[in-house]
Structure formats: structure tokens, C-alpha cells
Nucleic acid binder design. Sequence first.
DNA 1: CGGATTTATCGAACAATGTTCTATCGTCTG
DNA 2: CAGACGATAGAACATTGTTCGATAAATCCG
Lengths: 245, 245
Amino acid sequence: MAGPRTRAVDRRPPGRRRASHSLDAVLTAAVELLDEAGDSALTFRALAARLGTGVGSIYWYVTSKDDLLDRATDHVLAGVLTAVEGQPGTDDPIADLRVMAVTLFDAIVDRPWLAAYFMRNTDVQGNSLLLYEKLGQQTLRLDLTPKERFHAVSAIVGVVVGTAADLGQDPPEEVVSGAVDRAEFLARYAATWRAADPDQFPFVSQIADEFAGHDDREQFLAALDLTLAGLRLQAGGEVGQPGHE
Amino acid sequence: MAGPRTRAVDRRPPGRRRASHSLDAVLTAAVELLDEAGDSALTFRALAARLGTGVGSIYWYVTSKDDLLDRATDHVLAGVLTAVEGQPGTDDPIADLRVMAVTLFDAIVDRPWLAAYFMRNTDVQGNSLLLYEKLGQQTLRLDLTPKERFHAVSAIVGVVVGTAADLGQDPPEEVVSGAVDRAEFLARYAATWRAADPDQFPFVSQIADEFAGHDDREQFLAALDLTLAGLRLQAGGEVGQPGHE
DNA sequence: CGGATTTATCGAACAATGTTCTATCGTCTG
DNA sequence: CAGACGATAGAACATTGTTCGATAAATCCG
């Protein structure tokens, strides 16, 4: 969406001889750590411990933590990409866009750490670029100017990543520790909001109940559908079936 | 949007006597540091140096760095809120929503560090909540269900923060150092994309030029307008003037 | 007034982390 | 066999956020 940062040259050995660890092993272990305990769990020392090697060794495959994260993201994105490519596809480009966006969203829900490094990982290369292309190809089937296509894809990716990032935050420790479950946690908030003076806070007090029974996925779909409705309008509206629930 | 994290109790002295530093001074200095050199510039040591105090003293006003950031954000958001409140307001709620969203976006452009801590700062309280309310009040003028209102506001905030966060990333060091200016930097990317095989990358190669002359604000407005168009449709469309350029 | 309590400050110490550096080992290659 | 190179290991360093105890200054209270 914006611009890349300089990348490390790939110093991976061509014929892997008998290396005890490959870049792939490093990346896999890194993803494991991230999956298991999130963002903060991925440290060079923890990674080295899991691989059974020294800290310094990792730097032979990777030039920095940023680099590690970039590659780990790309590693995972490969799977997302094939998932997206495996989707059937209809005669309605916007419906297809929707399916792809949802797939991407689900992938981020599965791996919340992806969200953070999706925004930061501005290097539009590798699988990230391929995904971008895949989305963009749907817009080619719409009656839009190139600029409108560009903006449409940006907007959709923005909705996905924006919503998912919000969701990717590690919940407060009370919830993690299991002391309070998510429902009660939300309910507590809702209570605060409902208690707000309806004259001064008409919206918040009306919305309190929605917030309590609040479903992230539903919220995402609502945002996505608003954007897609706008897009359908922009594309002339005559393409495909208008109302898709 | 999601949930809060536990907050520190306010131990600020009621009558400030002759304290050499107040919470306000700490927050102001923190914001200065963030404004001057961004995210990474705000360290407790740098902050202490600027205040002419010791590191430990800051912990009397603030319980952690998260807390510091939360308060600093809220501090700044106060200004944004009054800016939003100062806006005239028309008979078209959606137009008003647009103006407010743009104002918020501009604030984040001015202070890119806001974006990061806008998503993380899930404690929907203080000025953040007030802003939420302010946006929501516009939706009360639309023919929507409470749930739809909730989703609408979430979607709009998502667009603002999502786009702004993307933009808030510190650009690669080449650009910062002035070695390459932004235009050339983007052009370099565009070149890569344009060189892509048009058969395999029809979208990216078509879009390359748009990306080169790419304007963040324009991109944001495009995304916002898609969402608002969808919202207008959802609200029945008969409210206010339909096409607003 | 004088001790005690609260308010506020300071900087040394700690633990964790990313990163660098040097030493070393093994496997090819000539 | 000797040197080069691929690869590894871990000690050392700088920079973080955070904790702690010592201590001063203000305030309160009897």
C-alpha cells in the first residue's frame, strides 16, 4: 500500500548439503512461536532454544528481526494465497472479491500476529504482491478506471487489515488468565456505556447492547459490505446480482 | 472497538502545591518527543532528560509505558475533539460524518504515531469515547437499526485508522536520510511493477502508474467515500444530497 | 514546635532483548 | 594435507522498561 523497506539479499545456500538448519526450519519455528504465544514470544533466544542452536546462528539466515518477520509473514502468506487461488469464482467479480477478503480475514484471525506485520510489512513483494494482484484481477472485470481499481483494492485490503488489526491486540490479562471470560468482559463495558447519560451520550447508550453481544466477524462483514456496496455503485451497478446476503 | 486494558488510578495531586513537574508536563514533553522524532524517540531516559529529572520520577505520574502512551494519546485527542466539535454541520449526516472522518485523518497525518496507539489503545474511554459518540450521533440522524449504526461507526473509524496506520509507518531510511526523495522512491517501485509480465500480472502492471503518482490523502478519501456510499445506500438514500464531490 | 506521614525525586541495579564479534568446527577443493 | 568457505556457537554490548531503596521536601498533627 505504501512503500517497501530495503530487503536483505538471500544468502540461502543453493545446495543445502547437510545443514542442520535451513531458512525454512527457522521460519517454521518462528511461526510456531508466534502461533503459540503471540508477538512477544518470538525472541532470538527462544527461537534458538527451540532450534537447539545458538543465537548467533540465526543471523546467518536472517539479517535482523524485521527481516525475520518479513520472511515469516511471507512464509505464511503462501498458504493464504493458495487458499485464495483454490476458490471457485463466480460471474460476479464483487462477490469474488468478498470471498477473497473473507479468506484473508480468516487467516488473520487464525494468526493475529499477521495483522501487525501486515501493515508494517510494506514491502509489496512476494506473496503479498501476488495477493494484491489476485484481488486486483477481479476489479479488471469491473467498469472502472485504473485509478478506481487501485483505490478499490486498497480500500478492501484496508478494511480487512484494519478490522483484523483491531482484533489482533492481545486482550487484557484478565481475559487471558481466564479470570474473566470475554463475554463478561464485554458486558462490563456495556454496563459502563449503558450507564452513560442518554442526553449527553445518546449514541453510546443506545449502542451499549450491540457492543455487549458484539461479534468481530459480523463487524468485519458489515464494514466490508459497506465498501463493496459503494464499489458496486461505482462500477455501475449493472454487473452481477445486486443484493447478496 | 474491542476492549480496554486495566488503567492506573489517577494519583495526581489535587492542589498542585509547588511540584516541579505535573502529569501535564510529562505528557506534553512526551508528545513533543513523539512529534519530533516519532515512535522510537520516546524512551523514559530521553523523557527524563528533557524534563530535567530522573528516570524514576516519571513512574510517579505514570505506571508504565503503556499508560504513558494511553494518556499521551488522550491528551492529544482532546485537541482533535474540539476541532471536530467546532465544525459547522449540515443537514446531511453523511456529509458531516465525512468531514469528521477527514479531520480525524488529518490529525493522524500530523502525528503518525497516533495511528499505532489508536488501534492498541482499545480503552474506549475519555476523549476516544467522546469522539466515538460524536460520530455516532450523526448516525442517529439516519434511518438505521442500532446494530447498523454501530457497524457504520466502526467501519468509518476502521477506514480512517487503517489507512492512516499504513501511512504512519516510518519510511525506509533512504527516504528519511534524503538520499532518495519520495517521488523517486515510488517511481522505483512503479518501475518494478510495470516491468511485471502483463500476462501474469495484468492488474499490477496496469496499476503501476497510479502507484507512482500515488497520493495518500486521495487514497484515503476514495476508501472513505466507498464506505459512505454504501452507508447512504443502506440508510435508504433519500437523505441529503446523493452525490457530493 | 517536632515528630510522623505523605508526597515527590533520584539514580543505581535488574532483566530482557536485538545485534555484533570472534572463535571454532566441518566439509569440500585443489 | 592445507586453505577456503559454509555454518555454528555463545560471550559481550548497548538499549530498553521497570523495580527498589534512599532521601529530601512538604504537610499534618498533637
